[in-house]
């Protein structure tokens, strides 16, 4: 009789426990959904109330320390991101080799320093979406409507000696493409050669091309990416909330056209 009563009593307890467990699961799921949907708290993401940005100020036009001020594309981008997050930006000018240790040790919150996305660093770093592609571009004269990568046969192709462009050309030649190599000491000479019709095409990185175009406004050329080298903002892998804020600020700058304006200002 007692055993039967105990069994009778156990049933609602078990039911109650099951309901409680179900409630807890639903609550946890709701919290997860809300947390995922809501933007991270700025104070949690940047508890110091500022965004400390590590840059290498020796690499214009991305960042240049002229002894008094830091300026460049990366500096303007950092300021725009900080503005979007509604925090002040503070810069630490650090040499290239010290950048990553500054991030790992917590000296800076993020790195904006013409840094490519490096798969080898993915265990330690979390990258935002890319803000600039410094891949190699094939440049041809804008007036030559037939000129493009597929049409390049027996073309005179200008490039910087011993650069990655030369490796690319070697790969094409190994694939059977006939090209006439025009190596130059500097990448801008390769573009001079194209502009002065001493070459049919040139290969340089995107930054070199854009800077050259800015200096030769009367020359029109068209470009086609042949490789990609995405620059992105790096944060420490455990700074998930900070990364979300920065990545979403970058997306907003892209969406509004502000990023394109910043790039155009410097390149």
């Amino acid at each position: 009789m007692a055993a039967a009563a105990a069994g009778w009593l156990k049933r609602p307890i078990a039911l109650g426990l099951a309901m409680l467990a179900l409630g807890a699961i639903v609550a946890a799921a709701l919290v997860a959904i809300i947390r995922h949907a809501a933007p991270p708290d700025v104070r949690t993401a940047f508890p110091a109330g500022e965004i400390v940005v590590g840059v290498d100020g020796s690499f214009p036009p991305f960042a240049l320390d002229d002894g008094e001020t830091l300026q460049g594309l990366d500096i303007d981008l950092a300021r725009a991101i900080a503005r979007d997050i509604d925090l002040p930006a503070r810069f630490l000018n650090i040499g290239y080799y010290a950048l990553h240790d500054a991030l790992i040790s917590g000296r800076v919150d993020l790195l904006i320093s013409a840094l490519r996305v490096d798969p080898a660093r993915m265990d330690d770093l979390r990258y935002t979406a890319s803000y600039f592609d410094n891949g190699f571009v094939l440049i041809t004269d804008a007036d030559d409507s037939d000129a493009n990568f597929d049409a390049l046969k027996e073309a005179r192709i200008a490039y910087e000696y011993a650069s990655s462009a030369e490796s690319q050309i070697r790969d094409w030649e190994e694939d059977g493409r006939q090209l006439m190599r025009r190596p130059y000491e500097l990448p801008q000479y390769a573009l001079d050669a194209l502009r002065l019709e001493q070459a049919d095409a040139a290969i340089v990185d995107a930054t070199t091309f854009r800077l050259y175009q800015s200096a030769h406004m009367d020359w029109s050329a068209k470009s086609e990416f042949i490789s990609h080298d995405p620059y992105a903002i790096a944060l420490r892998i455990d700074r998930v909330d900070a990364w979300k804020l920065v990545d979403s600020a970058l997306a907003a700058l892209k969406e509004s056209g502000e990023l394109a304006k910043i790039i155009d200002r410097w390149l």
Binding site: F59, Y96, A114, L115, R116, Y161, A162, S164, E166, S167
Partner: peptide, 21 residues
Amino acid sequence: ADLLSYPDNFTLVSADFSKKP
């Protein structure tokens, strides 16, 4: 591996063993 930044220009050969001037 090439860093694809200015420190690459301290090396005598690139990561793919291309010899520099």
